[in-house]
Structure formats: C-alpha cells, structure tokens
Nucleic acid binder design. Structure first.
Length: 220
DNA sequence: ACCCAGGTGGCCC
DNA sequence: GGGCCACATGGG
C-alpha cells in the first residue's frame, strides 16, 4: 500500500477531531513540555497541580520560584529539567511575545517555528506540537508512535525528524491543520490500542496492512 | 525486578 | 549527520 493511501486510512480509522484535552493555547504549550517522554496520565496530575496552585499562567510561572514549579510538576517526571524548560518558555513569552503565545500567530510558520526552537528545552516535536495544537498552524507532528506505526506497517521511514515530517506532509490527503491533527491523533490512538511496543501481534488492528507478516526493525 | 511513557540537550566521533 | 547518556515519576 502507498503511504498516501495508508495516511488516509489512519485518518478514517482512528483520527480524533478534538484530541488534545485542553483548549487554552498556553496550557497546551505547558503540557507539550510536560509530556516529553512521559505518559499523559502523569501530565494530567502535573496540570492539575499547576491549576490548583494558581500557576497555570505566564505571569505566575514567571514570578514563581523554580522550586515551587518543581513541586507542582513532580508527577510528570524529569521535574527539574522541565521546570527549567517552563521557566525558559515563559521568559521567552515576555521577552518576545508580550507574554502571550497567541502572538506567535503574527509570524509566518517558519519564523514562528525557529523562534520556538530557540527556547531551551523546546525541540522539534514540542515546537510542532505547540504550532499545531495550540496555535492551529498547518504542520505535522512526528512522535515515537508515528514512527512505530509506520515501521510496523512496513514503511521504510527516514530517521531524521524533518525528513519524516515532510514526507508525511507531502503524502497527506490535505495540508491543513485539521488534517494534521487527525493524522497525529490517528497514529497515537492506533499505537496505543493496537501497536504496543512489546507486542508485535496486533490482531485487532483495523488497518489491513498493519502487522501483516513479520515485524520490521524499528527506527526509534 | 524489570519495561514503558505523546523528548531534549550534551558530549563524542 | 548518528550513537549514547542523564533526566525521574507512575503504571503494568
């Protein structure tokens, strides 16, 4: 099956329109940092701690002690590095965007992306997550699930993040934010339900070509 | 007692 | 450009 056809199936089978639980662009951005190599349940605990502590705002995070942030986000793991990253992010907001992540929408996609990538602790996936899910820019978000599903389906995918992102964007049925959200959520839901790391067999998988035959080597 | 989870940066070659 | 490592909590 062609990649183009496969992507259509991912969207039709498993794509979710409102996949990211939060709607506030700032909160989505913070969660994008918190979820780095971390299960979503732990992110929700940290999110709730920040909310209840009155810390889920650019101003309060900018003004609060790093230790206070560490304490609140502890359940999400890597809490020391992530507290620093959150500090860097809010400093960036006040330095470049008058404290509002929404102001990044005043820039072209590429410029906005480069600005995010200049922040300590924001790499390509986190930057693209903020661009797509918080700000509605049309860009694909590639993650470990995306790679696993495509590898298991037998596609020979590039290691390089941007090469894979562009390959998916090129073969996407559309290049708008809605389609990329459906694609990303589709990959993630598919991986969670049918394509676990430790179980090569996924008999319930709705995509016929997935897990057909032997499992190939995965490029994580 | 393992392995895994919605990555990133630093260091090395 | 890759390969390896630390970062750390909570669940299976």
């Amino acid at each position: 099956m062609s990649l183009r056809m496969f992507l259509k199936k991912v969207i039709d089978c498993c794509g979710v329109v409102e996949w990211w639980p939060s709607t506030d662009p700032f909160e989505i951005s913070i969660q994008a940092i918190l979820t780095q190599n971390t299960s979503w349940k732990n992110v929700l605990k940290a999110t709730e701690n920040l909310r209840s502590g009155g810390l889920m705002s650019p101003k309060s995070l900018f003004e609060s002690d790093i230790g206070e942030i560490e304490k609140a986000i502890r359940p999400s793991g890597f809490y020391r590095v992530k507290a620093k990253r959150i500090k860097s992010f809010v400093s960036f907001l006040f330095d470049k965007l008058e404290g509002r992540i929404e102001n990044l929408k005043n820039y072209p996609l590429k410029a906005a992306r480069n600005m995010l990538l200049s922040v300590e602790g924001i790499g390509k996936e986190t930057a693209d997550t903020i661009l797509l899910f918080a700000l509605d820019f049309p860009i694909m978000v590639v993650d470990a699930y995306t790679r696993r599903v495509l590898s298991r389906a037998g596609f020979d995918i590039p290691r390089d993040y941007d090469s894979l992102r562009e390959l998916i964007e090129k073969n996407s049925p559309r290049r708008d934010s809605r389609t990329f959200k459906l694609l990303h959520s589709g990959f993630d839901e598919l991986a969670k339900r049918y394509c676990k790391k430790t179980s090569p067999k996924c008999s319930l998988c709705p995509l016929s070509s997935l897990c057909k035959g032997s499992v190939r080597r995965e490029h994580s």
